[in-house]
Write a protein that binds this DNA or RNA. Structure first.
Lengths: 217, 217
DNA sequence: AGGTGTGAAGGGTTTCACAGCC
DNA sequence: GGCTGTGAAACCCTTCACACCT
């Protein structure tokens, strides 16, 4: 099997593919069975050329003058994005942000399953929040192994992040969504995406300043 | 005054500049008064060439064989990033995520001031959470005006996001940090940065799958 | 006519590599 | 020698534009 498919795709493309999937899911198939690239593109906020190019590696082709079959494109996208195995995710760190993530992901996202959370504070261990059981920090490796966790959302304090990340990857986690405002140094073999809230807010504030200046002229 | 400075800088560069600033703040100046580009770059997770290039528009120059003066570089960065006016921010939507953001930003970030929160649910209005007063949705325009809000973090349900965004921008907000999983269509004159948690998690899961496949060979 | 898929062009970002300096 | 600043190259991503299809 050649399998040139999912290899060497940038995170940007994959990110947009997930957006296309989400937009398609919001279409009632009894009402609209087919969609044009410019229509779907507009809903997501990209150009139609970009959408068509993004779809190339997925392998599904639309038909000229008819567009894409909504259901078939959805199926192709899911096959492409989800791959063969389960995507079990652990939330690590049950502070304000960790709790919000547990609520957010358990209610909204059917593509990745939250199997539990890890927390150092003994007062929280054993409790169930948002349908998620909370395990102790020393159970980390065992939980990853037993629940076949491949993905983790890191919402621990900055000082602890590198340590916990090391343990997660060593235990077999292959993907990290890191909310701690530090650069994680990890041995290859794991993918890290950083969500840096302070950084994002500061970027917005910086541009807001510029726009304000413009307005004053 | 020419003011070629902050114009036409990409969000990527500005984002990294905020990271450099943060990393510099963690250095004790009595212990280390000067730093090399490769050292600072390593702490942030970028190449030294990139760091040096990013600093070009800031205008501060290091000296060969000595590196950068930590305090002076910090001052230059702050002058460059913060601009002239205040950066007052409103959190809009006090659900799980909104509350987490209030806690996160009020404790961690001295560069942007959180002046309050907006929420539709009458049960929450008037209460104070994390030191933030919660205002009603119908007070939005008044609060933006009175508190000179230029930045907002949007954590409202998907369905409400476009509407609320329109109102915010119309009231004078120049920058939006949007957590709602929709593409916002806004009239020019405002900057939008999207933080799409589900998308980020799915990207991580997708790559995690690939890394798992590799491991099986 | 009005779609799609895609080679080729264009634009932006990162890295290379080296002159200049201490 | 070993650093910085920066032109030039390399690389990646997006857009253009057009052949092809129905």
């Amino acid at each position: 099997m050649p399998d040139i498919t999912t290899r060497q795709l940038s995170d940007k493309v994959i990110g947009r593919l997930t957006l296309y999937r989400r937009a398609l899911r919001e279409i009632d198939p009894t009402e609209q069975g087919t969609i044009f690239s410019h229509d779907l593109a507009k809903r997501v906020g990209v150009s139609s050329a970009q959408l068509r190019r993004d779809l190339m590696p997925v392998g599904y082709e639309g038909s000229p003058n008819r567009g894409y079959d909504v259901q078939k494109l959805l199926a192709s996208l899911s096959g492409f994005l989800d791959g063969a195995r389960d995507r079990n995710c652990l939330v690590v760190g049950v502070g304000n942000l960790g709790k919000a993530l547990m609520a957010y992901f358990t209610t909204r996202n059917p593509n990745v399953r939250i199997v539990g959370a890890i927390e150092a504070d003994p007062k929280l261990i054993g409790r169930i929040i948002n349908g998620c059981r909370i395990y102790g920090l020393d159970e980390l490796e065992a939980v990853v192994l037993q629940a076949e966790v491949t993905v983790a959302a890191l919402a621990v304090p900055r000082e602890a992040a590198q340590d916990v990340a090391n343990r997660l990857v060593h235990a077999g986690v292959k993907g990290l969504l890191n909310f701690a405002p530090v650069h994680l140094d990890l041995p290859g073999g794991a993918y890290v995406e950083n969500v840096d809230l302070t950084r994002s807010l500061e970027v917005v504030a910086c541009f807001a300043n510029q726009y304000s200046e413009e307005g004053r002229r």
